[in-house]
Simulated scan of single mutants.
Amino acid sequence: MRLFSLTILLAAVTALAGCNFKSVPEPQVSARDAEWLAQVPKAEEDIRYARYLMDDETGETPGTIVVDTKQRFLYYVLPDRKMIRYGVTVGDEAYGWTGTSRVARKAEWPNWNPPAEMKARWPHVHPMQGGPANPLGARALYLYEGNKDTLYRIHGTNEPEKIGLAVSSGCIRMRNIDVIDLYNRVDLNAKVIVR
């Protein structure tokens, strides 16, 4: 059994090596970030959803964010036909959202005020100040269509074990260190395509 597991692991590593994936260094974090990140529950990272630099497969202009809800990946397009791929949690079928929007606002350790629809589904949810227990995590990118808030966000999470699943209420969740990395790269008014 051990030999079989080792063979599968070697096959996976070999397959990844041929895909031109390159890991992306961790972003620098502030003292507050480091302190609060240490308080978020840890989850074993699935290498399929790790942060990788790779050849651009989107064809979009640099600075664009593309979310593939079926594959559970977010792509940030870089110059020189490269992109960074991040693993994400997406909305389950009942709450999924697709469309084109823009990043109208960015926030560090944002406060959370659940929308009315969420409060109706889960009466126990209530507004929370930013911090390690907050479901929005370390950073949030607020998505607007024109000047209208979609109420959808790209944000961190206090449930990193759910990366790669379709269990959110429509928002795109990322590991906190990944959303910090993306936040540092993304400009206001960046185009966001959710497929």
Rank of each mutant, 00 (worst) to 15 (best):
W97I: 14
N113H: 06
M83I: 01
P115D: 05
W97T: 15
D92L: 10
T100L: 02
V77Q: 00
E93V: 06
P79Q: 07
E108N: 13
N113A: 11
Y76A: 02
R105W: 07
K82W: 06
V88F: 04
L78G: 03
A107H: 11
W109K: 05
P79V: 07
Y95C: 10
N113S: 09
G87H: 14
W109N: 00
L78P: 02
R85C: 07
A94I: 12
Y76Q: 06
Y95H: 15
G87S: 13
P110W: 02
P115F: 15
P79H: 05
R102T: 09
V88C: 11
I84F: 08
A107F: 02
T89R: 06
P115C: 09
K106N: 01
T98W: 14
T89L: 13
G96Q: 12
P79G: 06
R81Y: 05
R102C: 01
E108T: 10
E108I: 04
T98R: 15
Y95L: 14
P79I: 06
G99F: 14
E108L: 12
N113R: 02
G99C: 13
K82Q: 14
P110I: 00
Y86A: 08
D80E: 15
T89S: 14
G99R: 15
D80C: 05
S101N: 10
L78A: 03
